[in-house]
């Protein structure tokens, strides 16, 4: 028996919105410690990793490790039937080929039940090595979203460069070019508005803006985002989910031909 109740059901809606343009099917890998999802886009350019600890659910019950394969289209249709303040309970019995979703309004007056057929998804699991990054930059998520959107007006690629002077985003195309520099904040009222730059080594990488713009669909999940960069390595973009989980996107860099 697997059962997990998310008090803030809107978090599930936001998670699905954040990944539905990148992947079509996902496996929920459920264990006693929580739920994880790993999925790659069809072009093998980016990877989504979702980790949700069991402490984010009340109750959480997972008697035996179970993998639940779901089509995101069906999942998206179902969760859209939940109100933002509903709780969402996910239930699956061993040996059945369905997953159940129960939505409850905060006052308990309205409950809705939906069932989706499980799918057998052949997913390739990747080993993600522990990486010591050259630079780790934490910034407001809306700021990162804005930069990616603005830069994609100029070109298909963005160059991200971290130096002791800060982080620079640049793009160029037929029309012209642009550069945006961010420096570490000194005095900020709210922690979530802070720009924090950890620099071990200067780093300079190029990425496809198309994918970064997909990743920024996760902006409603968190006020902050962390970019972890290492020379000749994939970028890791992390959106925390409350204090119990995270959504990470890995993107392979563009390399010189």
């Amino acid at each position: 028996m697997f059962e997990a109740r998310l008090i803030q059901g809107s978090v599930l809606k936001k998670m699905i919105d954040a990944i539905k343009d990148i992947v079509t099917d996902i496996n929920l890998d459920c264990s006693s410690t929580g739920i994880s999802v790993q999925a790659m886009d069809s072009g093998h350019v980016c990877l989504v990793l979702i980790e949700l600890g069991s402490d984010g659910f009340e109750p959480y019950r997972c008697d035996r490790n179970i993998t639940l394969g779901l089509g995101l289209k069906a999942l998206s249709v179902v969760v859209r039937c939940a109100n933002n303040d509903d709780s969402i309970t996910i239930k699956a019995q061993e040996g059945t080929d369905n997953i159940n979703f129960v939505f409850e309004s905060p006052n308990g007056e309205k409950t809705s039940q939906f069932e989706i057929k499980l799918m057998d998804i052949d997913s390739e699991h990747l080993g993600i090595p522990d990486t010591e990054y050259d630079s780790v930059v934490k910034m407001p998520s809306h700021e990162f979203q804005r930069i990616c959107r603005d830069m994609s007006q100029l070109g298909d690629s963005i160059v991200v460069a971290c130096t002791k002077d800060g982080i620079q985003f640049s793009a160029s195309g037929d029309m012209g070019s642009g550069k945006i520099n961010l420096r570490q904040s000194s005095l900020v009222d709210k922690e979530e508005d802070q720009i924090n730059i950890e620099l071990n080594d200067p780093v300079h990488l190029t990425f496809a803006l198309r994918y970064l713009n997909y990743f920024t669909k996760a902006t409603p999940l968190s006020p902050t985002v962390t970019l972890s960069l290492k020379a000749e390595s994939p970028l890791c973009v992390t959106y925390p989910i409350g204090d119990f989980g995270s959504m990470k996107f890995f993107l392979a860099p563009k390399i010189d031909d």
Partner: peptide, 14 residues
């Protein structure tokens, strides 16, 4: 112009 590299160049299949 730079070309898009594959993620499998960096991460191994388990």
């Amino acid at each position: 112009t730079p070309i898009q590299n594959d993620l499998l160049e960096y991460f191994s299949l388990l």
